[in-house]
């Protein structure tokens, strides 16, 4: 059930919820951290940790939606499950558009929350994996020499502008053969085996749209 060092974070200003919800979740075996405001949550730098967030929508000071925006700006991909005692439809739409897992109206059935938590933690895990993969890929691309980067740029350009490798050679003022050599070095360093694979890898690393 619980995932290695994944934590279920709770941000809610209501003391009774803050006392009972963590207890219920801990009893089910989750790591739980609870905060009484979005500000406290941000200060603990919890947004970058693995896990998911159960977030009350309407709170004095920083609202749930504001915290969600704040986390998006911090590039945190933590999945969020909104909970609320108010149940405002417009807010829920906004929250869902910004990538929330679900929007639950208090009091919800505990099973539903558990389902959503599992969903959120799975998504978080996927996010983490993707993030790792992206990081590794980026590191591979960082091993390229400057010249190889130039060739890569041209190759990536050739994808969109339909430029042949001969064209690349012309642009860079080097021989077609040299381009071919660079190309195989690039494929080797980025652990890819074909031009399409290289391009999707570059996309993952954020080098190519």
């Amino acid at each position: 059930m619980e995932v290695e060092n994944q934590t279920v974070f709770i941000v809610d200003d209501d003391p009774s919820v803050l006392r009972t919800l963590p207890r219920a979740l801990m009893r089910r075996g989750y790591n739980v951290e609870a905060y009484e405001s979005g500000h406290d949550f941000l200060q603990a730098n919890a947004g970058v940790k693995p896990g998911c967030l159960i977030l009350e929508l309407s709170m004095p000071g920083m609202s749930g939606l504001e915290l969600q925006q704040e986390l998006l700006e911090l590039d945190s991909r933590m999945p969020i499950i909104f909970i609320t005692g108010h149940g405002g439809v417009p807010e829920s739409v906004k929250a869902m558009r910004a990538g929330a897992i679900d929007f639950l109206e208090k009091p919800f059935e505990p099973e539903i929350l558990i389902e959503r938590i599992e969903e959120a933690l799975a998504k978080d895990k996927e996010n983490q994996r993707e993030y790792q993969k992206q990081k590794q890929t980026r590191q591979r691309f960082e091993r390229l020499t400057n010249r190889e980067r130039d060739v890569l740029d041209c190759l990536l350009l050739s994808d969109t502008k339909k430029v042949s490798s001969k064209g690349v050679a012309q642009v860079l003022g080097i021989s077609h053969r040299t381009v071919e050599q660079h190309r195989s070095r690039i494929l080797e360093k980025t652990q890819t085996s074909s031009l399409p694979e290289l391009i999707s890898s570059a996309k993952l690393a954020g080098l190519h749209k």
């Binding site: 919820v17 207890r23 005692g85 108010h86 208090k106 009091p107 059935e109 505990p110």
Partner: peptide, 25 residues
């Protein structure tokens, strides 16, 4: 009604979570 709904939903949520925990135990 609107105010009451919000105020009541918090304790109801707490009751719900407590009974869940107690059921588990």
């Amino acid at each position: 009604g609107t105010g009451l709904a919000h105020e009541l939903n918090q304790p109801l949520m707490a009751i719900s979570q407590c009974s869940d925990t107690a059921l588990l135990i």
